[in-house]
Amino acid sequence: VTTYKLVINGKTLKGETTTKAVDAETAEKAFKQYANDNGVDGVWTYDDATKTFTVTEMV
């Protein structure tokens, strides 16, 4: 189990959260659900070296 981080660069919501998951795919599903629940829709990137997902909403 690995800890993954999500950085949110939203128009109205900004911040970070973490989740523990067995792999990046599982973490991504959890983060996308979290973003969807919070009304964040944007471009996703993932950095495997730092285990960090970033979602950026276009203005």
Rank of each mutant, 00 (worst) to 15 (best):
D48T: 08
Y4G: 01
A35D: 01
A35S: 05
L6Y: 01
Y46Q: 01
V55F: 03
I8L: 09
N36H: 13
D47P: 00
V59R: 09
N36I: 15
T2V: 14
V1K: 08
V7Y: 09
G42Q: 02
A30V: 14
E16W: 14
T54Q: 05
T3I: 13
L13Q: 09
Y4T: 01
T52C: 05
V43T: 11
E25K: 14
K5W: 10
N9Q: 11
V7Q: 08
L13C: 13
D37S: 11
K14Y: 08
Y46A: 01
T54W: 08
G10P: 03
V43G: 04
T45M: 10
G10R: 04
K51V: 04
T3P: 04
F53K: 00
G42E: 01
K20D: 15
V1H: 10
G42W: 05
V40Y: 07
A30I: 14
G39D: 07
I8G: 02
N9Y: 15
K29T: 10
V7D: 03
T56D: 10
Q33P: 02
L6E: 00
T18N: 06
L6K: 00
A24M: 15
V59Q: 13
V40R: 02
A24C: 10
W44S: 00
T2F: 15
F31Y: 02
N38F: 15
K14C: 10
F31L: 05
G15C: 13
Q33G: 05
L13S: 06
K32F: 06
D48R: 06
V40F: 10
T12C: 13
N9R: 11
K51D: 03
W44G: 00
V55C: 06
E16A: 09
V59M: 13
Q33F: 05
L6M: 05
A27D: 00
M58H: 13
V7K: 09
T2C: 11
K11T: 11
T18V: 10
A27I: 01
A21W: 03
T12K: 10
I8V: 08
V55S: 02
Y46P: 00
T2A: 10
T17W: 13
Y4I: 01
E28I: 09
A24V: 11
M58W: 09
E25Q: 13
K29Y: 08
N38V: 14
K29P: 02
T56W: 08
T26P: 02
T19E: 05
G42Y: 03
G15F: 14
A24P: 11
N38Y: 11
A24F: 14
T3G: 04
K20G: 07
D37I: 10
D47G: 02
V7H: 06
N36W: 14
F31I: 02
T56V: 08
K51S: 05
K5D: 02
D37Y: 08
N36Y: 14
N36A: 14
T17F: 14
M58K: 10
T50H: 05
F53C: 00
D41H: 13
A27L: 00
W44T: 01
A24H: 12
K51F: 13
K14S: 09
A27S: 02
K5P: 01
T50L: 07
D47H: 06
W44E: 00
K11I: 12
Y4C: 01
E57Q: 12
M58P: 12
A35T: 06
A49K: 11
A24R: 13
T54R: 05
N36Q: 09
V59T: 13
D23M: 04
K5R: 11
G39E: 06
A35Y: 03
D23S: 12
K14N: 10
K32H: 11
A49I: 15
L13P: 04
Y34T: 03
E25I: 12
V22K: 07
V55M: 04
Q33Y: 05
D37C: 09
K14E: 05
T12N: 14
L6C: 08
A49D: 11
A49R: 08
T52H: 02
G39H: 09
D41P: 03
Y4D: 01
K29I: 10
Y34R: 03
W44D: 00
D47T: 04
V1T: 15
D37Q: 13
V22P: 10
V1P: 13
G42P: 01
L13Y: 10
V40G: 02
T54Y: 11
